[in-house]
Design a protein around this nucleic acid. Sequence first.
DNA 1: ATGGTATATAACTGAGGGGGTATGCAATGG
DNA 2: CCATTGCATACCCCCTCAGTTATATACCAT
Lengths: 110, 110
Amino acid sequence: MEVSAVFEVLALPARQAIVERLREGPATVGELAGALGLSQPLASKHLRVLRDCGFVSVRADAQRRWYELRPEPLREVDRWLEPYRWMWEERLDRLGDRLDAMARHEDEEE
Amino acid sequence: MEVSAVFEVLALPARQAIVERLREGPATVGELAGALGLSQPLASKHLRVLRDCGFVSVRADAQRRWYELRPEPLREVDRWLEPYRWMWEERLDRLGDRLDAMARHEDEEE
DNA sequence: ATGGTATATAACTGAGGGGGTATGCAATGG
DNA sequence: CCATTGCATACCCCCTCAGTTATATACCAT
């Protein structure tokens, strides 16, 4: 799974909200739609995208569909982030490398 | 800065590639366009978006514009990810909380 | 059977944005 | 000065995709 696809999924606030809501535990389509102010078809469509990207798994219970968050896509983001962490994490080694970077950061943004 | 805006920026492979390229150090528009196979106007447009989101800062040097990667937006992603890390990080505490989650994960995806 | 509930999907529409081409503009080097 | 380089922006087209409405399907209750 391409990490840019993961970013694309999270780029929409609605889908991001679904992911955040599912952190509390599994939920049905109706619950998600109600909690987030989405129409039922729209919630289903977003969940379809999330499902295709591995963000959620589904479990059938009568007519209900219980959606549950899965770790893998977010873990991919975490891995993708790894080579950038030196930029903000304080570490005693590599300190020298950061000094000139800090010097360049003296002029702030617009 | 909204984190979904950060995700939206990274959703495009071209912009993600620019970010990855800038990890090696500052670069000019022409260098980025050449290295990534983008037209110059397109590179400028993407860099404009990256700039508006705080991903990069610019430094003028004659006609050249040196773009440099800034940590803040990626750091925001890192922070956003924090409450999800328990899902894949192995920790001796909280182990009990994860057992039922593992049990639910026994049925695999499609 | 029948009506109601829960969800998925199809068809449609509108807007946003990526990408191209053309142009403007500043700074440089003869 | 004048041509060139480096970059930004304006304008345009087109395609994708979010969101709506309507419908199909499956399951439950009585």
